[in-house]
Design a protein around this nucleic acid. Structure first.
Lengths: 128, 128
DNA sequence: CTGTATCCATAACGATACTG
DNA sequence: CAGTATCGTTATGGATACAG
């Protein structure tokens, strides 16, 4: 299957191929789109397991939103909530193996975000 | 710079590194996040240049939203609006070279979306 | 600590109609 | 064809308080 984004003239095959790609990207955005989901997974991949830890690491997220996002992520098979009985009860969230399938995507986005910030910085310097 | 998402024990360095990654991803999401921007760029990379063409290809987008998104994309240096005087006036949107920097990200997302859909299909089959 | 409940503000979006 | 205007709806998220 051809997946590269390319610049080319139109023909009938491209419309179908384009549709395939758009559907795939739409599927992905549906599950991991939005402001927080990838960031939560990244924070967890760095060892943050507790609710408060994650909230501290993911700057700006409120408890209400974090709670809701964690439920979504659990439903979609990225994480699991583990409750350890004891005094007090200890609750940890853990990444499931499926979250590792996002590694390439996260790396690509990180790389792009870094270069984009550098581009903006360069543009601002140029204007002075 | 280390950018991989990995599963490891905590230490002081990770917190900083995590913050770097989260900032980068947050930057990226700010510019290309949301439901439509990547899809519009993909449609355009497949040769769609006219407003109506893009709207037809990006299923479900309204004229109002497309218009607004195109303005954002132009502001951020991804596309340019070209007006050819003539009868009637012809308007085309073209990708700028900067949009090609998204290729790796789009490929990763496409790949992930395809495998995710297959995973869902497999799970549904398994339940029957 | 780990959330939930409530309230409120804003953003995002869809539908429709309309203009040059 | 390429949008804009208007309206209404839903989604999203922040703030605060509160509960187990």
């Amino acid at each position: 299957m051809k997946e590269s984004i390319e610049f080319q003239t139109e023909n009938k095959e491209f419309t179908e191929e384009c549709h395939t790609i758009l559907t795939a990207v739409s599927d992905a955005l549906y599950v991991i789109g939005g402001k927080w989901k990838l960031m939560i997974i990244i924070a967890m991949a760095r060892g943050n397991k507790r609710f408060t830890e994650i909230q501290r690491q993911v700057t700006g997220i409120s408890a209400r939103v974090l709670s809701s996002e964690l439920k979504d992520l659990e439903l979609n098979g990225f994480i699991v909530k583990k409750v350890e009985n004891g005094y007090p009860v200890s609750i940890e969230y853990e990444l499931l193996p499926y979250s590792q399938t996002l590694e390439e995507l996260v790396n690509a986005m990180t790389k792009w975000g870094i270069q984009h910030r550098q581009k903006l910085k360069a543009e601002i310097s140029a204007k002075k």
